[in-house]
Each structure stands twice: as C-alpha cells, then as structure tokens.
Design a binder for these strands. Sequence first.
DNA 1: TGTCGCGAGACAGCGCTGTG
DNA 2: CACAGCGCTGTCTCGCGACA
Length: 354
Amino acid sequence: MARASARGGGRPTTTTITDVARMADVSPTTVSRVLNGGYPVSAETRTRVEHAVRELSYVRNAHAQALRVASTGLVGVIIHDVADPYFAEIVAGIQEVAATGQRLVVLCNSLRDPGSELRYVEMLRGQRADAVILAGGAIGDPHYLQELPQQARWLRRQGARMIMCGRQMADADAVLPDNRGGAYLLGRYLLGLGHRSIAEISGPPDFSTTDERSAGLDEALRDAGVARDPQLTVSGHFSRDGGYDAARVLLRSRSRFTAIFAANDMMALGALAALREAGLRVPDDVSLVGYDDLPILRDVVPGITTVRVPMREMGRRCMRMAMSTARRAPRRETLPVELVERESVAPAPARQQV
DNA sequence: TGTCGCGAGACAGCGCTGTG
DNA sequence: CACAGCGCTGTCTCGCGACA
C-alpha cells in the first residue's frame, strides 16, 4: 500500500500523489489532472488513476495543497457555549452549507471568555483558515474590543475573512438578527395586554445582545409612556441557571410585576422553574416571554411566547459569506424576527401584582 | 489534433550551514 | 552573533515537447 521505500525508519508513511501515479503507471501530473479536471485525459487513463486512488485509499494532503492553491478549505467557528441550543442551531446551519461546499468546520468553544476567543482567532490564523465565524454577542472587554478588529485586519491581509454572527464590527462581514426590533415587538405585545410592571431578566452587562434587547424593550415602554422601574431589572448569564437565579432575586425583592421579559429562552426556562418553585402559575399569576424560539420550547408547558430568531438561517448565511469571494467593503445582512405567541402570556390582572 | 510526460517553479516555515 | 541562503516537505500549474 503506502510506499515504504522512500521513507524508511520509524517515520509514518502516507500515500502521496506519486504512489498513485506509480500504481496507475502515469506521471503525477496526470494524476493531478484527473483529480482536478480542466485538462484532457483519456477515459482509459482516467479509469486507471481512479482505480489506483481507490486501491490506495488516497486522499490529498490538505497542507501541501494549501501551499499551492492558497486555500485550506478550513472554516473556524467560535461560539460561546457548545451546550447552548442557540449556538447548536447556528452551527447546524453552518455545517449544512459547509457540507455542500467541501469545507471543513472547526468548532471552538470560548465559554464567553474574551481571552479564549482571541487565542482561537490567532490559532485559526495560524492554521490559515479561509474564514473565521464568530457567533454570539460582542463582549465588552476593552482589550478584546481593541484586539479583535486588529485580528480581522490580519485575516483580511492573509486573504481570509472574519464573519460576525449576531453582532457587528468594522472590517468584518456580519449577519445580524434584529435584536432591538424583536424586543420592541415583545414589549408592545405585553403592553397591549395591559402589562405596565414588566420585570426584565437581562443578559450579562458587557454583551451587545444584552444592550440591544434591553433597548428594544425600553423603546416600547417609552412609546407607551410607561416609566421603567430600575428595581425591576436583574441581569444574569445567558443560561437556564442565569434566568433561574435572576428570577429568584426578583421574587425575593419587594418589587411588584405582572410580567417577566427574559433576554433569551434559556433564561426564560430558568425563570419558569423559579416561578413554579415559588408556587406561582404562568400565565395566571405572572406572564413570561423569552427570546430566540429554541426548538426545545415546543415541548415546554406552558408554551413560552418568544421572538423567533432565524438561527439556522443565520448560520447558513454566515457560511455562504465564508465561502464567497472576499470583498473590500464588509457585508451586512440583517434578518427579520417574528413574534411567536404561545400560552405563557395572559392579560394583566386588573389589580393583582406579584 | 488530442493526449500525455517532463521539468521548473511556487507555496510557508523550520532547521541547518556558511559567511562576515 | 547576526544574517543570508539553501534544502526539504507534497501538490499543483504551466510551458514545452513527444508521440500516435
């Protein structure tokens, strides 16, 4: 099988284009022509080469190929948390498109640590990735905010590009959900049902997603002439436990509210658990809304009203950007979101407040 | 004219050798 | 000691020549 003559000793041997050429009784040039097309090769020779490729289980050396064609076919995807269904959906969309384009996706889990994210970008640059997709809201760390655009510029110089999924940055392409617009929709919906005391379980303070969704709710309240009570905002991690803890803080406070606006669905699930533990019914005692429309929400009782973010489509679009030719001007695509009404919201009770 | 082989050169980056 | 130059890795492209 793999040649033992050329490289002896304990060194690992691999099948190269030369081995295929030898078995097919042609030159490496002809093997390359068969594999890549674009040159005339007789049917008989083509068959011999293809047979040798199968016999030797030959696959091209991606590193060596990258040297010649200046493309590794590698796309790095950096996400905050692999256990978060939000990112799972985005990655599913990315891989759907990657599979059609013969791209290898490398998944990196930053656990929302800005230092990890920067290190992964550098490592992917070192691997000469064709593109790096950064999914999730921006982190407000000063060093990170200064360094990341620099990394995007270096990538661009290498002929690669950076694509932001769910946030934007100069020198990088971006696919964005309308965070502010979606939060505005939810706010208006709650206000329309008579809710005036709306508690907010917001995301961590240093994330752009947190700011945008809070701003959307703010805008809805402002438009309705409803003053916002700062006591009714508690921040937490973008997770089930983050929502659970924040809801418990709200319940322990003496503040009164008729509805909870959670910054994402996982937080809404945590809040639902905390409300249930406190003996409160959703939506009879408190209304609850989430954000994202994660697939797992379909099996939750009561069904949680939310905003559908086209996560899979965002992933698909990011990958298409990664596979397309880089342009000078960064590209921006904003995807619309829609309100999904389920059973977790009821009209505000006339007097009763939690 | 079609098909194929040959050889040079390019690619990134490490390690080695020679030179000043 | 610093620096330049070269070899090495595997693949691919390109120009040119050979052959049926």
